[in-house]
Each structure stands twice: as C-alpha cells, then as structure tokens.
Design a protein around this nucleic acid. Structure first.
Length: 611
RNA sequence: GCGGGUGUAGCUCAGUCGGUUAGAGCGUCGGCCUGUCACGCCGAAGGUCGCGGGUUCGAGCCCCGUCACUCGCGCCA
C-alpha cells in the first residue's frame, strides 16, 4: 500500500527468525533476488483469480501485495479455493521467478510469486458489505459503519499514513525551533466566549460540570506565565458546532503553539518555515508532480484589504480575480439602481470575468440566478464582445462611462464584469462568493499550488446588529494595537488587534494573536464589550490572576492539523483524513455514539433526562 | 433551526409520458477452466424501489410528511 512506509519489520530482523509464527517478509518485500527462498507471508486475500487448475491470490498487507500461486497438488489449494476475499491467511511457500510473459510491471513484487505449500486461515471473512479492492465510491454511512474496511482501501490507508507522517514532521520541526510539547487538561472549565461547549457532569459535585476545551487557549498562556518560553501541542479541541466539509463535528486537532517575549513578526518567522517545510515535504504525496509552495515570507494582507479585494478573510490566492470598489463610477449614473445605492452610502463592487466574449448570455443570467438563490438581491453584469458592451447596466450607464470603468479595472475588449451592490459587508460577501464561482467556472484557479498568506490587522471589535452592542470580533485575549491608549481614545470599531490568520488555498488554517497580558488593558477591553470587572474576574479568574503575578508578553497561533492534511492529500473533506470520523450530525456509526446512559449512571451523576 | 442534493439487489447504477413480470455490471452461490493479475465462460439466487400517507383504474416515477447520508446558511472568541 505504501511501499517503504513502515520500517519496523526490517528484513534483517525477520531473517533472524525464519520460522516466525506469522511472517518472514512483508507483502512488499520480495523480489527477483529472493527466488528460491522458502518464505512465510501473512495478509488479507485481496483478489482471487481461479483458473480451475491453478489459483492466483493477491495477498495484501499494510506494505503491499504479493501474488500467491497454488496448483491442484498444493495442500493450500482447497483452502484458498473456498476462502472469501478479505480473509486473513498465513502462507508458506517458495519464491519463484515469474516467466518473462507473466511478470507484472504494475506490482513492485511483480517479478516473483510465492508458490503456496501450506496455509493457515487466521480469520475467515464473512460476505463483505463493501468491497475493499478497487476505487469505486461507496455511500458515506456504509463507509463510516464499516470504517475498518474502508481504512483498508488504498487511498484512505495512504491518507491516514500521511496524517501520521505530517504530525511527526510537525513535532520534529517544532522541537527543532525550540518548542517543547506539553499536555494540558481535557476536563476543564467552560468559558463564556466562543462556541458551545461539550459538558461533562461531575459525580462528586452534584449539578456541576466540566467542559472539554475548545482549545487549550488559557492553559498555553499560563504555560507562558509559568516561564516555559515556547510551548506546542498536537492538541485535541472540542466544539459543539455544526459540521462543514472542512469542519469536523465535535473534535479536531490543532498544532497549538505559544511563544514568550515575541512580536507578531517573531511568531510569523517561527511558524512559516514549519508550515512551508511540511507542505514542501509532502508536496508530491501520492506520487504526483510536487505542488509549488509559497516561498516565505508569506504575503501579508490586512483584513480590510482582503475583504475589499477578495470578498473574504480567507482568500484563495490561486484565483487571479481581484474585486474592485467602483461605487464612484456610478455616482449620478444613468443606471439608477447603482446611483441610488451609492447615494445611500452603500457600495458597488466589481468582479472581472475575463475572456467571456464567447460565452452565451445564459452564463451571465445563471450567475445572477445563483446569487438570488444564495439569498442576495442579484448579481449585475456587463458583457463585452470585441469592445462592444452588452447588458442593461452598460446600456443605462452609457458607453463612455462603462469604458472608463473597464479601463480603470484593466479589462479588455472581450472581458465581462459582474457587480455586487449593497451594504459594504453584504456586497463584499457576494463579491467574494462570485469571485470564487467565476474563477471556478472559467477554470482560472491555478492547480498544483499551495498559496499561503497571512491576514493581519483584524478589527478588535465589531458591532452586533441584533443586540445593538459591541462584541469582540475575534479573540478577546488579543492585544489591541495602540494598547490602553487606543482603547481609551479611539472609536472601538476602528481599533485593530495584533491578530492574524494563516490561509492556504482559501482554507483558514489557523488564527492567532499577540495576547493581551496586561490586566488593566484586559479589563478595559472587556468593558467595551460590556463585561464588568467582576464578570471578567469570575469568568477568567485563572488567567487574569496569573497576569497579576508577572506575565511575559506572548503570542502564538494554532494551525488546524486536519485541514493541513486535507490540503496536502487534496481531499474535499476532513473525513478522508480522519481515522474514525463522525457523521455530520456528530454520530459515530461504528461505535454507536452518542448512546443513552443507564439509569444508574445518570443517578450517580445527579442527572435526570427530561425529554 | 433552515435550504439544496442523494436514496431502486450486498455494492455501483439504468429504469422513457404514470401502464404487462423493475433491469445491467460487480459481488455472492453452483458448475467449467493450468498463467491470470479488474482473468474468462455457463447458470442460479438475490428487491418493503429509504419509511409513512395521499392522488389515480394503475405510482419506482406525481403530491404531502418523515428518516438517513451529504453540501451550504445560521452557528463557529
């Protein structure tokens, strides 16, 4: 499966014990040089080819496949003849060179085969709910219920090995950078910010609950206060949120790290080579032409610029399209809709659609249809063929004015353009989604690339329209740029934080920050978000207390391990890189979790189920 | 919580405008086959068309509800 990926059973070791109970070699090990040896192999019956007089078995283990042959005189023949695929057998036989015409160049062991003399059935398989051999797709629920079968299949098996290798590489690289790995508690306290918590009832303390950590955020900061200087952990994180393709329900892993006495630049300089190094190390995964990885330093894009130019705080830089703010072009325009939008203080954003002269009107109308289906008012457009404009916007806006707009955007005579208008946040969001969709439909997304960037200068606060109050926009423990003075003198919505995300190919890998280690700044920041000093003391007592006894300036981040592996494996969702994933509704179909508790368990926990 | 997609044999799928006994490939079982490597050939078994209700002379197909998986929205400091 992964030739050479598992070295624990070296040939030297095995040959010291030729009569080992189960094997002298793995199923990937034998070649022409071994001809004449008597060997013992163990594995799964991958495929059978029964020719009546002669029987071929592809025997598979973790390492590879070896062809076993049994003639009618072999004692193994009747056993292999009967046995079902995926049964586990041990075969003893002689390694023989295949005849020239019978060599299989597709198989690393294809120069030889093992002539079976004896066989032991270690474990007979029942009829399978899904085949293991072959590349066909199978329903997700069957794959999850029989995950142990799914995991035998080549691609998933390779993904899981990749995951292990990525984690080993991350550990090695972090340790080389002077980081130290520590474990932090799994049973901890709930915190009021963030996602919903998973709660664990306490038997000893009736009515009280532990929470599983959403991240070891406060613990790692306390490690810095404790003077450990550079912490990291492949940390399990638990959040009770609904799943997405790139968001596992329930639990996931982060490369969690934190550093003392650092600026934002120091954090970037520490982690960039780790990430770039890992992505480069596995860029050729699966035998593909290695993908190119962004050379450091990664581009840094301020949050506001990302929202404007890419319509997203996790831009896919493989997409060459850049959004333009074109509201000024429509001030007083003959296209009344956009003129009124601008007059009302709202915005118009334009998304290029290069080389679309040859596309039918349907392409543009479908895009508008799609925008409406997404819940937006619509996506306007201007077409252009051989320099001639088309569509209602161009007609009303006027040829000269439209030409000026196109020139300002650098668009040519055969390029089209889409428009998203409305409140800045809404228009940016639609423009961002449209940018992605247009890029995909026009085939503009560069392939074979890992394009990294930092998103920096996130706003510290945002306005909560529903509750008519100011909220933290990201992490409440981030240091505001300008520190206490900024909090006291600036409009809170104008304050930026030393807060940053790493993005790769449109996937948010991590968010991090230089932390706020000063109690007086923390009280002030929480006050702006509506928390009293007492509330801060109550909810964050562990950390705020610690900061009163000598805390180093510190910062860090926490790239998602699952997402990294997903990107490297080029898989569309996280289940393809998680060994035992749950369904979208956070159920484990194989183990049957979650499950009801017994009355006795509930009694001990002082819990009564009310529904 | 909401919206989209999918659901027909163990698996992958086809199934016309609503019309006779729901088909194919793979797998399974039986038979044949001494050089295959996705072996081949012959035969057989295998179906609550996800489930429930409705419309209709008649439903795999239309309608309503519901369940499962999934993609997205909400949610995700």
């Amino acid at each position: 499966m992964l030739p050479g990926s598992f070295q624990a059973l070296s040939p030297q070791h095995l040959r010291t014990f030729p009569m080992h109970a189960y094997r002298t070699h793995t199923c990937a090990q034998l070649g022409a040089a071994d001809a004449g040896q008597t060997v013992k192999l163990s594995g799964w019956v991958h495929r059978k080819r029964d020719h009546g007089g002669v029987l071929f078995i592809d025997l598979r283990d973790h390492h590879g496949i070896t062809q076993i042959v049994a003639g009618p005189s072999s004692p193994a023949f009747p056993v292999l003849d009967r046995i079902r695929l995926e049964s586990v057998v041990t075969v003893v036989g002689e390694v023989v060179l295949r005849e020239a015409g019978a060599v299989n160049p597709k198989l690393p062991t294809g120069a030889i085969e093992v002539r079976a003399k004896d066989i032991v059935v270690q474990s007979a398989a029942e009829e399978l709910p899904m085949p293991v051999a072959g590349e066909a797709d199978y329903p997700e629920d069957i794959r999850l219920k029989y995950r142990f079968l799914d995991l035998r299949r080549e691609r998933l098996h390779a993904n899981i090995m990749l995951r292990s290798h990525v984690i080993a590489s991350l550990r090695r690289r972090m340790i080389e950078q002077g980081f130290t790995e520590f474990q932090t508690p799994i049973l901890t306290a709930s915190s009021p910010e963030g996602a919903r918590d998973y709660l664990v009832p306490s038997r000893v303390h009736p009515g009280k609950f532990y929470a599983l950590p959403q991240a070891p955020q406060m613990f790692k900061q306390l490690m810095m206060v404790a003077g450990f200087d550079r912490y990291f952990q492949i940390a399990p994180c638990f959040r009770d949120e609904d799943a997405r393709a790139d968001r596992s329900p329930g639990e996931f892993y982060q490369l969690d790290f934190e550093m003392s006495f650092v600026t934002q630049d120091d954090v970037f300089a520490a982690i960039e080579p780790v990430l770039a190094g890992v992505f480069e190390e596995f860029a050729g995964f699966g035998g593909r032409e290695p993908w190119a990885v962004t050379k450091g330093p990664f581009p840094r894009i301020p949050y506001a610029e990302a929202i404007l130019k890419y319509g997203s705080d996790k831009p896919d830089l493989r997409n060459p399209l850049i959004i333009h703010d074109v509201g000024e072009h429509f001030r007083g325009s003959g296209f009344g809709l956009f003129a009124r939008v601008v007059e009302a203080g709202q915005v118009v954003r334009a998304i290029p659609a290069p080389n679309t002269a040859g596309l039918s009107r349907k392409f543009f109308d479908d895009m508008n249809e799609w925008a409406r289906a997404q819940g937006f008012p619509g996506l306007g457009y201007v077409t252009r063929k051989g320099g001639e404009f088309g569509g209602p916007i161009a007609k009303n806006h006027g040829e000269a004015a439209t030409a000026a707009l196109f020139d300002a955007m650098g668009l040519g005579p055969d390029d089209g353009c889409f428009f998203a208008a409305g409140k800045p946040a809404d228009a940016a969001k639609l423009a961002g989604l449209a940018r992605t969709r247009i890029g995909e439909q026009l085939g503009l997304i560069e392939q074979g690339q890992f394009k990294f960037c930092w998103i920096v200068d996130f706003p510290m606060f945002e306005y909560n329209e529903d509750e008519k109050k100011i909220d933290f926009s990201h992490n409440p423990f981030s240091m505001p740029q300008g520190e206490l003075e900024a909090l006291e003198t600036k409009d809170p919505l104008d304050i930026l934080a030393y807060q940053y995300d790493i993005v790769c190919n449109g996937v948010e890998l991590s968010s991090g920050a230089i932390r706020n280690h000063k109690p007086e700044i923390m009280y002030k920041a929480f006050a702006i978000a509506g928390y009293t000093k007492d509330q801060v003391d109550a909810n964050f007592s562990g950390m705020i207390n610690a900061f009163k006894f000598g805390a180093p300036p510190h910062g860090g981040s926490a790239p998602g391990v699952d997402r990294m592996v997903m990107l490297i494996a080029d898989e569309p969702n996280l289940r393809e890189v998680v060994v035992f994933p749950m369904t979208q509704k956070a159920e484990d179909l194989m183990m049957g979790a979650p499950a009801p508790a017994t009355p006795r368990q509930l009694r001990e926990l002082h819990i009564r189920v009310v529904d």
